[in-house]
Each structure stands twice: as C-alpha cells, then as structure tokens.
Design a protein around this nucleic acid. Structure first.
Lengths: 241, 241
DNA sequence: GCCTGATGTTGACATCATTAACATCCCTCT
DNA sequence: AGAGGGATGTTAATGATGTCAACATCAGGC
C-alpha cells in the first residue's frame, strides 16, 4: 500500500494525497496551532497546487477537521499510555483512583508536549451545515471525537464500581473531571500560567487532580447545617450529545 | 466629553474613533467570536476607512486585545453581580462557600449569555513582542486581565479564613477552581455539551461546583491505606505570572 | 483502443491585514 | 490673529488567503 509516505508517488498523480495533506497540515498545526493550518501552505509543502486539495477535502475547514482528529487521537493515546504505565495497585479502589489520576496527568502531559496539536484538537469548527458532504468518507465525528472524554468516563465508572465513589455522584462526574483537566490545560497553555517552571506545572496538576478526586471520593460533610441542602440540584441526567 | 456615543461626531474628524471601533469590534465578537473581529468590518460599521483604525491601534491584534478587555470586564461584572445577589448566609463558613459557588455560577452564566464575547475574552493573542508599542496607552494587561481569576482567589481566601478549607490546600486552589469553571464553560460552548437543555446545563454546573468545593472542604479520608500519601505532591508554590 | 471519471493545474476573484503617500482639520505658539 | 504642526483619515497598492470555473492529464474499463 505504502500510504502516507514521502516516497509514495507511485507514478500516479501523487500516490495518495489526502494523507500527505493531512500530514502536512498536522505539521503546520504542531507549531502554530489551528490558525496555522493554511490550505495553501499544506499544498505547498506537499508540492502540489492549492486547488488540488479540493479533490480530497471540501475546503480548509474539512482539512482542519482531519487535523483535529489527529490531535484527538494523539491525546487519547498519551492518556492511555500514561494510565497503562502506572505502578502497582495496593487495592482495587486505589487502582481505580490512580487510573483517574493517570488519565488526567496524561491529558496535561499531551497538552504541554504538543500545544499546537492540542489547541487544534479543540478548536472551534464552523460545524458543517449537515447534508451534502463533499468527497472523503466523512465519518461520524462522535466516534473518534472526544475519545479522551470516554476514557475519563470509564475510569470514573471504575471509581464507582470499587465503592470509592458514591453512585449518586456519578452522573455528571465525567463533565466535572473533563472540565477540570481541560481547563487546567488551557490555563497552562494560554492563560496566566503561560510561562511556568515544569515542576510548578506538575505541582499544580497534582494539586488539581487531588482536589477533584477528593471531591469525588470524600464522604459528605458530617455536621452539615443543611440536611437536604438548598443547592441540591446535584446529580443531573447523564446524556452527552 | 460625550465619549463612545453614536452622536459623538462633534464636527471633529469623528469625535472619538477608538471607542467607536472598540464598540463595533465588540459587537462583531458578540456574534461570531474572536475570528469575527475583522478590522475592516469594524471600520465599515463605524463608516470609516479601514486604515483609519491604524491611528488608534497597532493593528487587528491590538483591536482584538481591546475586545478581550471588554469581555473580561463583562465576565468579572457578571461574577460580582452573581456573588452579590446571593441569599442570606447561615454562618460565616457557609457564606464563604456560597460565594465561591456564586462566582463560579456567574462565570458559567456569562459564558452562556455571551458566548462570542467569552471566547474572545480568552482567545489567543500573538503576544506583542514587547518593546515599541504603538499608539494608545497600552496598560499592563495583568491588571484588568483575569480579574475573574482574582475574584475566585479572594473567595478561596475566605474559605480558608473561615476554617472551611485547610490552609495547606490553599496554594494552587485558585488554579483548580478556575480550571474547573473555565473547562466547564468551554465544554458547554464548544465541546460535546454544545446543544443541551438549559436545566441540564445548570445541573451539570451545580454538580461540578459541588464536587470541587467538596474537594476543597472535605476532611482527609479517615481510613487511608497511606498515612503520608504517595501522591503528596500537593501544595505547590503559589506564583502567578 | 477509445472514452469516462478521478486527479491536478492555471487563472481569476473577493476578502483581509498592512504599508506608503497624501489630504484635512483642530490646536497651539508666537 | 494667523501660520505651522501634529493628530486624524483617505486613497492606492502589495501580498496572502479561501474558493470557484475551466482546462489538462492520467488510469483503467467498455
């Protein structure tokens, strides 16, 4: 097959563009973020005319979409690697907790290692108006999109299964976990924590993860002035997308 | 003075452009986000030549910066309003906790009410290379920037002062709190929770706030298999910017 | 062995940011 | 008061971008 390789021009017009363009565009995103994903530039890198890209993508937005997918894939892989490479687990509950922590740490790790790709992975897309999609098998984004999200959710299920987290807190928990981790990543990349020493970033990450996990696993405050609680709008329906 | 008003053309060239441009650009951002802040469009709205803007801004990036400031201001004001309008406080500790909660809710409220402005408020800026700044008294961004961040930090101080939150957890806590709230906002705006019923969004928000606050205030798990804790990289140095 | 469709190319257009050169108008200094 | 100067805007031009229409080329099936 020889796909997505530089020497892939088999005498054909190119071999397989599309993948070559995706690779070029991903490189652009790697240093420069989503706004650096310029259709003409990608075509230039591949050594092809700008309009050639329109044979494989509906336009620049579609190309960016492909880059997003690359970014999401990389993120999920880093998270899985981080969770897989964690040390021994004293107990089942401990293991589940450590997995949540490792996934969160992997999330931050990827964001810091590949800031451009990370930003591209979560950049806003004009949202195709549905209906007539151009060339290229445009799959349902929800399958690969936000795979990191599902990883987190499954880890939280483990937290409940081992009894570490009350089942009543489970609904919406993946939202909370994702929000905390993603917000931290954004804060570290673009926010006031832009230039910070690595060990400080790690410390903040550990602190945030500890706090959120404690929020999931800690018992309810014993001497509460509110038995039912006025802000008891907790535990919402769990329905994503 | 008659500034920033539509009828402000006092026979002068315009009265005060700059503010008129900022207003126009802010309107553009309101529906369309930061990428809709197009210099030429803003100038067109004000009824002025595109290059006229260069007398008041170094370029489009500078104009966007002004819009960011508007967004940050709006965000902080919504948060303060939300925190100020909260009900009675049974105890000091309870009040501090409710303030944190109200600030977070205000954060989300603004993000949902003004999605374009919110995104503009946190959009990436090329970061002026320091040194020769163009026209316009370019103040230090850290003063108005991230005012919401400071609000959150002060509320957390209150949490410690009333004894609700152990002092040892305070360092880095504003990072955690900000991350959770900001991540949730992004998730609701651009993420998988894009189109969700309002009451569900409120429920998720309440759930996230409850979890994080519990993480701040809950006692350490009593029957822990780890007395000192292997993941005790908590409590990092507190140094922003 | 030619025709059809996939794949690329050239040319053109509209928009954008930005600069240079020029015009205008108010304010201040003498 | 009147002239100059600086602030404020305008026109013209440049280079980059996304995108479309028309044309060229190559592979493989009838």
């Amino acid at each position: 097959m020889m796909r997505t390789e530089g020497t892939g021009k088999s005498g054909y017009h190119h071999g397989d563009l599309r993948n070559a363009l995706i690779e070029a565009a991903t490189d652009l995103a790697r240093d420069g973020g989503p706004e650096a994903v310029v259709l003409r530039a990608a075509a230039r890198r591949v050594g092809v005319s700008p309009t050639a890209a329109y044979r494989h993508f509906t336009g620049q937005g579609d190309l960016l979409m492909a880059v997003k997918e690359q970014g999401q894939r990389g993120l999920a892989e880093t998270m899985e690697r981080s969770a897989g490479a964690r040390g021994g687990s004293p107990s089942a509950g401990e293991a589940a907790e450590e997995r949540v922590r490792a996934l969160g740490a992997g999330y931050i790790e990827f964001a810091l290692a590949e800031p451009g790709l990370f930003r591209a992975a979560f950049c806003r897309t004009p949202e195709a108006p549905d209906g007539g999609h151009g060339p290229g098998p445009e799959e349902d984004p929800s399958r690969w999109m936000y795979r990191s999200f599902r990883l987190l959710a499954e880890a939280l299920d483990g937290l409940v299964a081992t009894g570490r987290m009350p089942a009543g807190r489970r609904p919406g928990a993946e939202i909370t976990a994702w929000a905390a981790v993603h917000g931290l990543a954004v804060l570290l990349l673009d926010g006031p924590l832009g230039r910070l020493a690595p060990e400080q970033r790690d410390a903040f990450t550990a602190s945030a993860l500890t706090t959120v996990i404690r929020g999931f696993t800690a018992p309810e405050r014993p001497s509460a002035t509110r038995p039912a609680g006025p802000a008891a709008k907790d535990a919402p329906e769990h329905d994503v997308s």
